[in-house]
Write a protein that binds this DNA or RNA. Structure first.
Lengths: 144, 144
DNA sequence: TTCAGTGCAAAGGATTTGCAACACC
DNA sequence: GGTGTTGCAAATCCTTTGCACTGAA
């Protein structure tokens, strides 16, 4: 976490941005978020912790955290709202999503990562990141 | 295309919905769309072809076409707007996306499809569909 | 004839922005 | 001290909805 802050600070400085208290608060708070979250979740959590930060500020800080590679915008969306997830110091993973109960399972598979790199090579791409979402019905929802 | 119409008609009837002229127009028009498109693209294209259909109707019809499995909602989003792509009679494919020039390359890879099915099995999922997006820099943008 | 579908304009919800006050560097 | 930041409220953008009218079955 302290390392994250240092890293974030470095990113800000490099881009002529400032390390304000709001940014520090939000960084700390967001690093504790589990799974996928939206701006509203951040706002609620900040209110719960008496760290008053305005909604506008949250909207302005999220893209900065993405730039700093601390969070990542998720391709999942919850009713029109953008979702993010923490990537800082997390192993890369992909998602299994149940269409019925909306449960999201994270998994990691090396073979697939290798294949992906091969495909990228074939098309002359240098891979920066990737997303794989497997959508279906989970064990519990198969019977329904 | 005629088959698509027949199929669509069947889907509508089965659900107590009606095959209106607007739905026929839009079906025909959407089947000609290339790649990813949003409601606005549909509207523009319909105006260009003098097929007046209101924006509200487009928003109401897109979900019906998804239900009928003629189009699919894409996980890609273009500045907050929902995107779709035609799936009717198209082989499944995944995407390579260039972060720099935004180019999207479609590709198909059987090995990966097999792996995906294995992973789904392992977690007890019955796969309905999947999305894989490889994000990076294309040959042209690597040098920039 | 009946009820789903349409267009319109108003409503809604998420996100962005203008501006004056503020606070990092 | 100068410039990036913030909070607030208004503005914007995409999408949904209420309603009276229309048209497919």
């Amino acid at each position: 976490m302290n390392l994250a802050l240092k890293n974030f600070g470095r990113h800000l400085k490099k881009n002529g941005l400032r390390l304000t208290v709001e940014r520090q608060k939000l960084l700390g708070l967001i690093l504790t978020m589990k799974g996928h979250f939206g701006s509203e979740d951040v706002l609620k959590k900040s209110e719960g912790k008496n760290l008053s930060v305005s909604r506008a500020t949250i909207y302005r800080i999220l893209p900065v955290l993405v730039e700093a590679k601390i969070i990542q915008q998720s391709l999942l969306t919850s009713e029109g709202q953008s979702l993010f997830e923490v990537t800082w110091k997390k192993a890369h993973h992909d998602h299994l999503i149940c269409i019925s109960c909306k449960k999201v399972i994270e998994f990691q598979d090396n073979a697939i990562e290798v294949f992906q790199r091969e495909i990228a090579n074939k098309y002359g791409f240098i891979l920066e990141r990737h997303v794989m979402e497997l959508v279906g019905r989970c064990r519990e929802c198969r019977m329904v």
